[in-house]
């Protein structure tokens, strides 16, 4: 599970109203949601994000509402992985549940800049720039969460495991 893409850099406390404003929540189709991802704060995002691109952010990413439309919009926009110093609780669960890979790393937030080409390995946690001049390891994912990711999201995990 290795991803590579250009960095879109964000600050601290990126809330779910910024990720997808509530006025766009009258639909639940992920491609429709993706068109309005970051509509108010970065109107250039939806039109320019390329498949594989990586979001790098500060603390408490995804705080606020429980709307799963937020990680869905990010994923459908083409973002391969979100790396942040920390994630808000509900967003963290939602991201794993829908199969949007996320990693926690302070160094990545410090060192990577907008537009930089970065790779991230979900299993080893390695995050590196081209040529690996900058190379960090994300906080390990709890085993249980890793199983959900490996299954491809909570629905498949539950279907396979026949429990919960």
């Amino acid at each position: 599970m290795k991803y590579e893409g250009r960095v879109w850099k964000y600050g601290d406390h990126v809330d779910t109203d910024l990720i997808i404003p509530a006025r766009f929540l009258n639909v639940s189709d992920k491609d429709e949601l993706a068109k309005n991802c970051f509509a108010d704060v970065r109107p250039d995002f939806a039109g320019n994000v390329k498949p594989g691109d990586i979001i790098v952010a500060g603390v408490n990413f995804g705080c606020g509402s429980s709307r799963e439309h937020a990680p869905l919009a990010i994923k459908a926009a083409g973002v391969s992985v979100v790396i942040a110093r920390s994630f808000a609780r509900i967003f963290y669960r939602n991201a794993f549940n829908i199969g949007l890979p996320i990693l926690e790393s302070n160094e990545a937030a410090d060192e990577f800049s907008e537009g930089e080409l970065v790779s991230a390995d979900l299993i080893t946690g390695e995050i590196a720039c081209e040529g690996k001049k900058k190379r960090f390891f994300a906080k390990p994912i709890p085993d249980f969460m890793r199983k959900i990711v490996e299954a491809g999201g909570l629905v498949r995990y539950v279907k396979n495991k026949d429990s919960l």
Binding site: G64, S65, S66, R67, E68, P71, I90, R93, N94, N97, I98, G153, L154, V155, V158, L164
Partner: peptide
């Protein structure tokens, strides 16, 4: 819904999650 935590006022445990969790 993130404000599900409201019911703590009654001495209940209540927490918000996303739609997939509730679907399950």
């Amino acid at each position: 819904d993130s404000h599900t935590c409201t019911y703590g006022a009654l001495g209940a445990f209540s927490a918000g999650v996303g739609s997939t969790d509730v679907g399950v």
